[in-house]
């Protein structure tokens, strides 16, 4: 494997990790506030569809992005109403949202475009263009560093950089602001937060909406950044990989970056090589595809560093009377 091949693999790792990172951070906000969310997949799918559809019609990728985020926020609203207002089962609500998105995207897509659930391919202004960072020209003559800068660091769409920026911002929001402290507290001990005079319902809704916003970005990136348009079931389990990454990262932002990059690398490798030959031992592509899930089960089993979820996660809060 030469240097350029490695660079190309790392480059696609970063691209493929971006939606995972958005979705993983989305899940982090929701679950840290005590609202489990297995509906990440559905929110991403809804966002991918609407962003693809609106971008295709208006030829404006920013309007597409807005529409995608709106779609995801609507799904979040359903999840919030079901699991916070009506104290329903958060897991069942998540399952419902996944199916709702899977069905509605095809149903509406077929009604609007009659392309079997796809949206028309995006051209020109309908897609996010790659950004060439300043200094690519100047560094182009430098061995190793030049191509590294041009391939890996420069030349991505703006959402890739936004995703990376979301990591320190999320860290700061969670660990350095009053809102973050309260958000984490409401996921551990909502009664204490309530006693302090802070509304549990408002905080949890805020967390669920942040989750919707980030899932919206993840979905919009899929349809308008990574590919050119929406296709049926285009999230292809990414919401669940993000969920796995969240557990892998033990609900922490920097570790989420590491976990999503690792899972992005696995996807990049299985896209590039059908079978990987490790000195006589051939690893079939299916092993690479299953690896994120296997790793997550091992982490969950607690054999390698136990993952302990937020204590009040999954339980609706009932105010004392």
């Amino acid at each position: 494997m030469d240097f350029m091949t490695i660079l190309q693999i790392l480059d696609s790792t970063l691209r493929l990790a971006t939606p995972l990172l958005f979705a993983c951070l989305a899940g982090m906000f929701s679950e840290r506030a005590g609202v489990f969310d297995i509906g990440l997949e559905g929110k991403m799918l809804a966002a991918a569809f609407l962003s693809g559809a609106v971008a295709a019609v208006t030829l404006n990728v920013w309007l597409g992005l807005l529409a995608g985020v709106a779609a995801s926020l609507m799904m979040s609203g359903i999840h919030g109403i079901a699991s916070i207002t009506f104290r329903g089962n958060q897991l069942i609500s998540g399952v419902a949202i996944n199916f709702l998105a899977a069905g509605l995207t095809v149903l509406i897509g077929q009604h609007w475009f009659a392309l079997g659930g796809r949206t028309p391919a995006l051209l020109g202004g309908g897609r996010f263009e790659t950004i060439t960072l300043p200094g690519v020209e100047a560094l182009s003559g430098v061995p190793y560093l030049g191509p590294l800068y041009a391939e890996l660091i420069s030349g991505h769409t703006i959402l890739v950089y936004v995703a990376l920026l979301c990591v320190p911002v999320s860290w700061w929001l969670l660990y350095r602001t009053r809102f973050g402290l309260r958000l984490r507290a409401v996921g551990e001990n909502p009664a204490a937060v309530d006693t302090a005079g802070v509304s549990v319902v408002t905080l949890r809704f805020a967390a669920v909406m942040i989750c919707g916003l980030l899932c919206g970005l993840a979905g919009a990136y899929l349809a308008t950044g990574l590919s050119a348009g929406f296709v049926k079931d285009m999230t292809a389990g990414r919401g669940f990989i993000a969920l796995a990454a969240l557990i892998f990262a033990k609900w922490r932002p920097w570790q989420a970056l590491g976990a999503t990059l690792l899972f992005g690398l696995l996807e990049a490798l299985s896209n590039r090589y059908q079978n990987i030959d490790l000195g006589g031992v051939v690893i079939p592509v299916q092993v690479m595809q299953a690896l994120p899930y296997v790793l997550t089960v091992i982490i969950l089993a607690g054999f390698v560093g136990k993952a302990i979820p937020p204590r009040a996660g999954g339980e609706p809060y009932v105010k004392e009377r």
Partner: peptide
């Protein structure tokens, strides 16, 4: 999805 949502999560 709607059956799961209304008979499950939005039961209340």
């Amino acid at each position: 999805a709607l059956v799961i949502l209304f008979t499950g999560a939005l039961d209340n």
